[in-house]
Amino acid sequence: MPFVPESVLKKRRAQAAIAADKDAASKKAAAAAKAKKDVIFKRAEKYAAEYKQQENDAIRLRREAKKANSIYVPPEAKLAFVIRIRGIIGMSPKVKKILQLLRLRQLHSGVFVKLNGSTIKMLRLVEPYIAYGTPNLKTVRELVYKRGYGKVNKQRVPIDNNAVVEQVLGKYDIVCVEDVIHELYTTGPHFKEVANFLWPCKLSSPTGGFKMKLLHYNEGGDAGDRGEKIHELVKKMI
């Protein structure tokens, strides 16, 4: 039997120990990933049922109001998607500051905003430079999946897997993209953290161009509040 130096044997034992630890770690990671996948799937199912229940409740209330010869008034919108449509020409310092606070520093950038007394006043002051409205679930989902980028260590990182979300928002029990969509759409308790995690969406110029940026939407232009019809503009710009 050939003589093997002690240093070689020691190296072999160390390599075997490293390989064993690596194999155990990979098995543990695979088991954790499987368990996490099951949790994410159950959450997605729960969210889908919640969205369906909201739709059914709205339909039921509308029918009950019609049956009682009354009018159904839907609750006020809590979420807005805001798109910057004009540059800095003729812009006052106050308007410029508000756009900076809204993180709308570039043309055709878009952000999700929680509607309250202060944000509504801010949007009114910068209306000539923005188009905004209440996005539906499909619009929120498409924006996050197609144009969603996260802020990780001050870097713009594409949200191409759930690990990117969990790395930043895991401490808030937000571990997947569906959690992000749910928090945005329902304006949940951690909306601020999720909105800050999302980088402003960089959209393209709309197909066919804008009609008239200097006029309000109600006057046949592009600026201002579009309500639920914001999805038409977003669809042209994704």
Rank of each mutant, 00 (worst) to 15 (best):
P2N: 14
P5Q: 09
E6I: 13
S7H: 09
K11E: 15
R13V: 11
A17Q: 10
A20T: 07
A24W: 08
K27V: 03
A29C: 04
A30F: 02
A32H: 13
A33V: 05
A35K: 13
A35H: 08
K36V: 07
D38Q: 15
V39Q: 11
I40F: 13
F41L: 14
F41K: 15
F41R: 15
E45L: 05
Y47E: 09
Y51Q: 10
Q54Y: 10
A58I: 10
I59C: 02
R60W: 01
A65H: 06
K66Y: 06
K66R: 08
K67Q: 12
A68K: 09
Y72N: 05
I85Q: 05
G90M: 04
S92D: 08
V95F: 02
L104F: 03
R105D: 12
S109N: 11
S109K: 10
I120V: 11
V126H: 07
E127L: 07
I130A: 04
L137V: 06
V140C: 09
Y145T: 14
Y149R: 13
Y149E: 12
N153R: 00
N153F: 00
R156G: 06
N162G: 04
N162C: 04
N162S: 04
A163T: 11
A163V: 09
V168K: 08
C176Q: 12
E183L: 00
L184K: 03
Y185I: 10
Y185R: 09
T186D: 09
T187D: 10
F191E: 00
K192Q: 08
E193M: 05
A195L: 01
L198F: 03
C201D: 06
L203Q: 04
S204I: 06
S205P: 04
P206A: 13
G208W: 07
K211S: 08
K211P: 01
K211V: 11
M212I: 09
K213Q: 13
L215R: 10
Y217N: 05
N218C: 07
E219G: 09
A223G: 11
D225P: 01
E228D: 04
L233I: 05
V234L: 07
K235G: 03
